[in-house]
Design a protein around this nucleic acid. Structure first.
Length: 472
DNA sequence: TGAAATGTTGGGGCG
DNA sequence: ACGCCCCAACATTTC
């Protein structure tokens, strides 16, 4: 049996792992993980993601009998050294789709092949790879619905999940760094509050999936809008790191359900595909407006407002609840992501990149494709984006989607005794009611940072000026 | 995967 | 019985 490497990246699982399956069939497998901050540049993993990765790597290594060889640095020389030391004849990995990884991996593949090493790459992370989903004329889709219906679902069914490799003969390496040496945990114990909210392993991801399919998916279409309800899957971090594959989720959901709730859930997987598709064809998506006319947008520069938004101190309870959920759990419910995003961009008039950067650092599910595509969607500068005039009102959004205040009061305990009627606009409450609730605006909870009505109007004016610039 | 302004309709109170 | 006004409840338009 030849010796081969299985290079784990965003596929930290044993089931439905094409690269691992192929490697196991080819020979004795040296399983490797390499933390690469060198090639990532400004897209190096954020803090919350590193915390997740720390636990996920420990789980994976333990599932491999503590045989995962862990390194840090530029992967090419590390792989070359391993190839020499262990007489490796082939390297297997599942493809990643961030521009910097594509460039890096292309170089690695070419270099290794030139030195006579076999390199085999597979699709382990997407239902449809970007180059499969182009329009008839070869251009990529820019609108979600036709992309998903025609480009994806109609084209061909996703690959069916693979079982765990039948036999897996592992090569033991003792001189690697180990997970702890990667120093993935924050030095300030910010992450300790994450712990109660997450179980991080391949089997935990499957448990989460099964629980969602048994319960949360019922009424998904409506219930997913309510952050206090348990109608969202919360699988995003596991999909990002690959503890579960989209193929496994896709087929498990289809085998158990049908109808509207299923269709809407599958289309959320579709948005993940769409984001990856956009990033692939528009590699500057994380930095540059997809619609160039937004380059002229008169963003404000206001460090204090940004910090109040980050800390959940804007004085708008539904916004602050979301931002505090993010800080405390590494996650935010999707409805609330849209609300806080709209607030940053359209009420505070701060550049969407500030939001993108903050989410990148604080989300356990931070994903370059999803994060940048979604921020551009919110800002209106992206593909198939929310039109610029779609500005969420944080008061009515709160009243609509957290009607009894369960979610908001959980994250904003200082407002827990404010009656529903004033929970989302406490400044309108009669002084006696605030006093009774133990609230003193400006002291126990902030005054609103901006007036929604006025800031909405200046946002519309700003977008209007953009239009004028383009037309003349 | 909006919100606000404006328009329309229809029931009820009232002279 | 009738017109008029008010206003809620929708519907449409506009940003």
């Amino acid at each position: 049996m030849p010796n081969v490497i299985c290079w784990f990246r965003q596929d930290l699982r044993l089931l439905d792992n094409p690269a691992l399956t192929d490697a196991a069939a080819a020979g004795s497998v040296l399983p490797v993980y390499i933390l690469d901050d060198e090639n990532a540049g400004e897209h190096a993993m954020g803090g919350a993601s590193r915390w997740w990765l720390h636990h996920s790597l420990n789980s994976l290594s333990s599932a491999l009998g503590d045989n995962l060889a862990v390194y840090q640095g530029d992967p090419l020389p590390i792989l070359q050294q391993l190839i020499t030391e262990h007489d490796i004849s082939a390297v297997f990995w599942n493809r990643c789709y961030e521009p910097w990884r594509i460039d890096r991996d292309r170089t690695i593949k070419e270099t290794l092949e030139q030195s006579g090493i076999e390199v085999e790459t597979s699709n382990g992370s997407l239902l449809w790879e970007p180059w499969e989903t182009v329009k008839a004329d070869g251009d990529p889709y820019r609108v979600f619905s036709p992309f998903f219906r025609k480009g994806c679902v109609k084209a061909h069914p996703p690959r069916e999940p693979l079982p765990k490799p039948e036999s897996l003969s592992l090569i033991k390496v003792t001189e690697h760094q180990g997970v702890d040496a990667l120093s993935l945990l924050p030095t300030i114990p910010w992450h300790e509050q994450f712990e109660p909210h997450w179980q991080i392993s391949e089997s935990a991801a499957h448990q989460r999936l099964q629980e969602f399919l048994a319960q949360g998916i019922h009424d998904y279409k409506e219930g997913r809008n309510f952050p206090a309800k348990k109608n969202v899957s919360r699988l995003s971090p596991s999909l990002h790191f690959g503890e579960v594959s989209p193929n496994q989720v896709w087929y498990a959901a289809k085998s158990m359900h049908s109808g509207n709730d299923l269709e809407h859930f599958l289309s959320e997987l579709g948005w993940r595909e769409f984001s990856n598709n956009l990033l692939y064809f528009f590699p500057h998506l994380p930095e540059k407006n997809l619609q160039a006319k937004f380059d002229a947008f008169p963003w404000r520069d206001d460090a204090e407002a940004l910090e109040r938004w980050q800390r959940g101190m804007t004085g708008y309870p539904i916004v602050d609840a979301g931002m505090r959920e993010l800080w405390q759990t590494g996650y935010m419910h999707n409805r609330v992501r849209m609300i806080v995003g709209s607030f940053l961009v359209k009420n505070l008039l701060l550049h969407w990149r500030h939001g993108e950067r903050w989410f990148w650092d604080t989300l356990v599910d931070a994903d370059l494709a999803n994060n940048s595509a979604s921020w551009q969607w919110v800002a209106g500068s992206g593909a198939d984006a929310a039109p610029y005039f779609r500005i969420f009102n944080p008061i009515t959004q709160g009243q609509k989607f957290d009607p009894d205040g369960t979610y908001t009061r959980h994250y904003i305990p200082e407002l827990k005794d404010v009656p529903d009627k004033y929970l989302f606009n406490p400044w309108d409450a009669p002084p006696a009611i605030l006093e009774k609730a133990g609230v003193e605006l400006g002291s126990t909870y902030p005054e609103p940072i901006v007036d929604v009505k006025a800031s909405r109007e200046s946002a519309l004016a700003a977008f209007q000026s953009l239009k004028a610039n383009v037309n003349g």
